[in-house]
Design a protein around this nucleic acid. Structure first.
Lengths: 201, 201
DNA sequence: AGAAAGCCATGACAGATGTCATGTCGGCTG
DNA sequence: CAGCCGACATGACATCTGTCATGGCTTTCT
């Protein structure tokens, strides 16, 4: 019997996935969590065999949870399930020791299969996502450029970005300009949207 | 036996919700759809009692589907399930004849209950969402302002917005300016984000 | 040690943007 | 009918942005 921890902030989805997994003879959902912190707490007390974690959650994101889990509970294999599969996320997830990475668009029996695969020590990454990640390559952005772009994402004016990043406005404009150049976009907002689509910020 | 049509672009979620609903004695999922168009086609051939539809789908959104369904298949009650419950969406949905509106954060047994409620001719709107919708009030944006803001959402420069909206650049700037004023934000990008958060564009 | 690359900053300039005053036109309403 | 409002437009102005040149400072690799 494979013991599973389910973490997803959407209660309905979590319940539905639990129902789905429970239909399988050899799978058992032993713990639920609605946030990253809760997932960690649950994992510590229930010590599941496999953790199925949603990428986007209110507090910690799935990758951070996976990272901690890999250190604290090496016996537990982690897999990520997400609605928005971006190349950058996949890379970060694999670097964090995640064994499975699935978009929520996969058919429902794949989930059970992958749970078994990662439990046996295998890995599984959605082929479409893997292809995307490979073709997307690495982020061309320097860390600072990424920081600044992230702040620009909310539409803040340069001065505010400068304050929040503790930089001078001129420097911020330089970073934005260089990010715009690297992304081949025509203004910072497009650049920011582009970077988010790739999962780089 | 209540016959249900399930529409959600995320295969996994759809399967999971189907598993969940099938646990109930009196519910039966008779059709699946991954897109809005598919949902309509399925509804026409299977004539379900209740349609459970995700708000965001690749082609038509849930509200459009509900609208068509209400005209073509009055015997079928429609309910919307969504990850991002914005006040504006709720209003549009109710105007389209939707009988139930739930965020995916509700607990899983609520879903079955609401399916039964709308099937009996009742209505159910998530209380938290309803409160938000009431407090948010109506959109202060004129139709044109909303159009222009929608185009601004992608970070396009004024000239492009003007071309796409068949307006003069000056007029576009006026609309954006007035939208910024109405929303109490400090630039068009914040205004656009704000309008989207409210579900007004 | 020297080169390369990232990080931070300044200043200048053109072009884009936000704001305001002002005006036309058509539809709705009292 | 007169008045109001929304849609559309123009021109002018101040400010914000994007770009470029330039320079200093630190870290890393060779």
């Amino acid at each position: 019997m494979i013991r599973i921890l389910l973490a997803d902030d959407e209660h309905l989805i979590r319940g539905a996935m639990a129902a789905l997994l429970s239909l399988e003879e050899d799978l058992e959902v032993v713990a639920h969590a609605a946030t990253g912190a809760e997932a960690l707490a649950m994992a510590r007390s229930f010590r599941p065999d496999v953790a199925v974690i949603d990428l986007q959650m209110p507090d910690l994101d799935g990758v951070s949870v996976a990272q901690t889990l890999a250190l604290e509970l090496p016996s537990c294999s982690t897999m990520i399930v997400t609605s928005h599969g971006r190349p950058g996320h996949l890379k970060r997830a694999l670097a964090a020791g995640v064994r499975g990475f699935l978009p929520k668009t996969v058919s429902s029996d794949v989930l059970a299969t992958v749970v078994r695969t990662v439990h046996k020590g295998g890995r599984y990454v959605d082929p479409a996502l893997a292809a995307e990640a490979i073709s997307a390559g690495d982020s061309p952005l320097t860390p600072r450029e990424a920081d600044v772009l992230e702040l620009a994402l909310e539409g803040a004016p340069v001065d505010e970005i400068a304050r929040r990043a503790s930089l001078s406005p001129g420097t911020v404009r330089n970073y934005l300009s260089s990010a715009v150049g690297k992304t081949g976009t025509s203004n910072r907002h497009e650049a920011a949207r582009w970077a988010r689509a790739k999962g780089w910020i």
